[in-house]
Design a protein around this nucleic acid. Structure first.
Lengths: 252, 252
DNA sequence: CGGAAAATTGAGTACTCTCAACCAGCGTGG
DNA sequence: CCACGCTGGTTGAGAGTACTCAATTTTCCG
């Protein structure tokens, strides 16, 4: 578990680590064998990051993009008062900052949630592959469009839903995305967020988040502990969370 | 003012009406004369829409994209309780729904703010021009990336700022975008939003929005009436609103 | 000039926050 | 092996920002 790239990752071929990415992109856009080979051949630096490590900082030059190979990530912004708002959560297999592709400096912070292996890919390489391969470009663009759609739903979530609905909605989203990525088992998935992070993602305080999670547990909707979330009653949870997965635009 | 396409618009050439769009896109990406001609030659249907008219509806097929030639637009989603969250505001010269380019059905509603002239462009035509002209594709992609960046800032705004800061921030954003588009005169710009719409954009109630606007006026920060916003003290307004324009990614 | 929409005001309420203390799990080190 | 300390989770009590309801005034158009 503590070993870095020296052991498990170096042994695994990139093909394996990029497989989830290619699988997702193929849903968006038909990729030829050449396209896939080009993606696999992307110049890229594998690196390990620890809990809460920063991948990109608000206001600093963004020269690379980061693909999560293992572990979760999140993005956040700080406001004047010092409060933090988490803007998005990312599952293994996702890019955390593809939206920076054409921006010279990042407009927010990107962090690892837990210990993660990350493929650090120079933006220039991605821009080049996008220029040369329209199908890949389309897939990348779609990644950013879905990311944007999720942001819009988050605006709605923090703007117009009460605490219980808000947290239920967040959990529904994350379980659905994990399911779509093949990362669930019997309505359970890995869930590395602390209650403080859930609070910062929903615009609540940690204390109120704690109490609200308790009511969700008491109602028999979820079970959440030690980095594992289990949905006990999807029907009622999604109803409570005012959740519809349309905005995730999961084709197929 | 009441005349539709029969008079002023028909007289003006598309070149004039598309000028703001091309000007913006040229900031993002170098466009050749051919590129510009191709944009001007886009198959497109001019239409007039009235106040609050729907351009796209949540859950319905999205076959066209809409470019605002005159007038403002906004996008919104409804939640279970019936409340409405406005997701973004759009100035004349902007696309309101370029994010739907690769989505078959819209995931939210798009409306005109006031009486607007809109270029209705088939998505197929935009997809084609993007496929044939990488520079144009890049400009379009950047439009969607900036749109996404604004959504992220809105998550922060409604999630972690108090009412006064929240409204001040919204006003700062809109004035800055209007200024960037050449639509201000002495720190004044057109501002067609009702207080109810400001409330729905900031996640507040109309009553509280009203009281908060009064304090902004009383503090001598703004003057706002009859569709016109004037910033009386930009320094203090942007300070109050915790506003930094970096997220708008306005190059040049 | 009339009616509807928008803006404004008042009073009472409540959801969520703040502050502060306490508990539990777990990795570290003596 | 167990004490220690840190982080994360839990609980209690009191406060406050923003909400609700409802009435009234003003503005905007036709």
């Amino acid at each position: 578990m503590k070993s870095g790239w020296g052991t498990e990752v170096a042994v695994l071929s990139y093909q394996l680590l990029f497989a989830p990415l290619i699988k997702r992109w193929e849903r968006y856009s038909p990729l030829s064998d050449d396209d896939k080979q080009a993606v696999l051949a992307l110049s890229c630096q594998p690196r390990s990051f620890g809990r809460d490590a920063y991948l990109v900082r608000d206001g600093e030059p963004a020269v690379n993009c980061h693909l999560l190979l293992t572990g979760h990530g999140f993005r956040q912004k700080l406001v004047k008062s010092g409060a933090r708002q988490i803007i998005s959560i990312h599952l293994p297999g996702e890019f955390v900052d593809l939206q920076n592709l054409f921006f010279d400096v990042g407009d927010h912070n990107v962090q690892c949630c837990n210990r993660s292996d990350v493929a650090v890919i120079p933006k220039a390489a991605l821009i080049q592959i996008a220029a040369e391969r329209p199908s890949v470009a389309r897939a990348m663009w779609l990644d950013t469009l879905i990311d944007a759609s999720i942001s819009r739903e988050w605006v709605v979530n923090v703007g117009r839903r009460d605490a219980k609905t808000r947290i239920a909605h967040l959990l529904c989203e994350l379980v659905t995305r994990a399911r779509n990525a093949g990362q669930t088992r019997n309505d359970s998935c890995e869930f590395p967020m602390t209650q403080e992070q859930i609070a910062d993602a929903t615009g609540l305080t940690p204390v109120h988040t704690n109490r609200t999670l308790q009511t969700l547990r008491r109602d028999g909707l979820i079970s959440l502990s030690s980095s594992k979330l289990t949905v006990l009653d999807w029907e009622r949870l999604s109803e409570h969370g005012d959740f519809s997965e349309r905005y995730l635009h999961h084709a197929g």
